[in-house]
């Protein structure tokens, strides 16, 4: 039974869907009425419908699909490289104090350096090509990925490791069959959350010296004050991020049937 207005009350699925849809309807309604009321300059605040028209036009007449694929490719490739580096490091650091105490003092401070501050350096080292963009996206997530994956590894219950030891498992077997396997759902959660962060660096990577990609399109649109195109770009980034998030949630649900209980064990 739904108790929507009780402290910490529970909600039925119908209520949840209704509330989520309601929030979006309200958002678009306010946007639309602001745009058509004449209160804001329509050049700077196009209506939602105008943005949809601009989006359709971008795909139909300006080859926007190529930009979208390019951006998607940059985010996924850089993220794949970052995961390939961070996962082994995180597992080692979360499992062996020696690795943690050697690598963490080096990695931790880098988290406080904003990745965009490396852009001038990357431009000089790697030029204006694809490598520079991949490198920026990589730098944007790698430090957080390493520390978060390390924390996931350390969160594996010590009792499970000790049980495996008393059952005769060797350290290499425990790393693979207990620590990695036990933390796998949490690794996936971390990757899903950091993938969202990766999208936030995409526009920065594509603002500087880029000719293609969603960000480059948005910068061109800015020059011609095409606010509807800019908003269409934002919309696409949002939708792509959301779809990837859903895919990874689906993967989690499919791959870990023992977590489908609602309560974590």
């Amino acid at each position: 039974m739904s108790r929507p207005f009780q402290l910490r009350g529970s909600l039925s699925p119908g209520w949840k869907i209704g509330l989520a849809a309601g929030a979006w309807v309200l958002f678009f309604a306010i946007w639309h009425s602001l745009a058509v009321s004449g209160w804001a300059n329509p050049r700077l605040l196009p209506s939602p419908l105008a943005v949809c028209r601009a989006l359709a036009e971008l795909f139909a007449e300006h080859g926007f699909a190529k930009d979208v694929l390019k951006s998607l490719n940059r985010v996924l490739l850089s993220f794949l490289i970052a995961t390939a580096v961070a996962l082994p490091l995180g597992i080692l650091m979360g499992s062996f104090s020696v690795a943690e105490n050697f690598i963490n003092p080096l990695v931790s401070p880098f988290r406080y350096l904003p990745a965009p501050s490396f852009v001038p350096l990357l431009l000089m080292w790697l030029g204006t090509g694809e490598n520079q963009k991949i490198a920026l996206l990589f730098l944007g997530v790698i430090w957080f990925l390493i520390t978060l994956l390390m924390d996931n590894t350390k969160a594996v219950r010590i009792e499970l490791i000790e049980t495996a030891q008393t059952l005769g498992a060797k350290p290499a077997q425990i790393l693979r069959s207990v620590i990695f396997r036990s933390a796998l759902p949490q690794y996936l959660d971390t990757l899903r959350q950091m993938l969202a962060v990766s999208w936030t660096y995409l526009v920065i990577a594509e603002i500087v010296a880029a000719t293609d990609g969603i960000g480059a399109m948005m910068m061109r649109a800015k020059r011609f004050v095409r606010v509807d195109d800019i908003m269409a770009g934002i919309l696409v980034i949002g939708v792509l991020g959301f779809v990837l998030d859903l895919l990874l949630r689906g993967l989690r649900w499919w791959a870990f049937p023992y977590l489908r209980t609602g309560k974590e064990t």
Binding site: R157, E159, E162, V178, T265
Partner: peptide, 11 residues
Amino acid sequence: MVFQAYTLFPW
């Protein structure tokens, strides 16, 4: 060894 805490591998 059998522990007091539940130690079955949940996966």
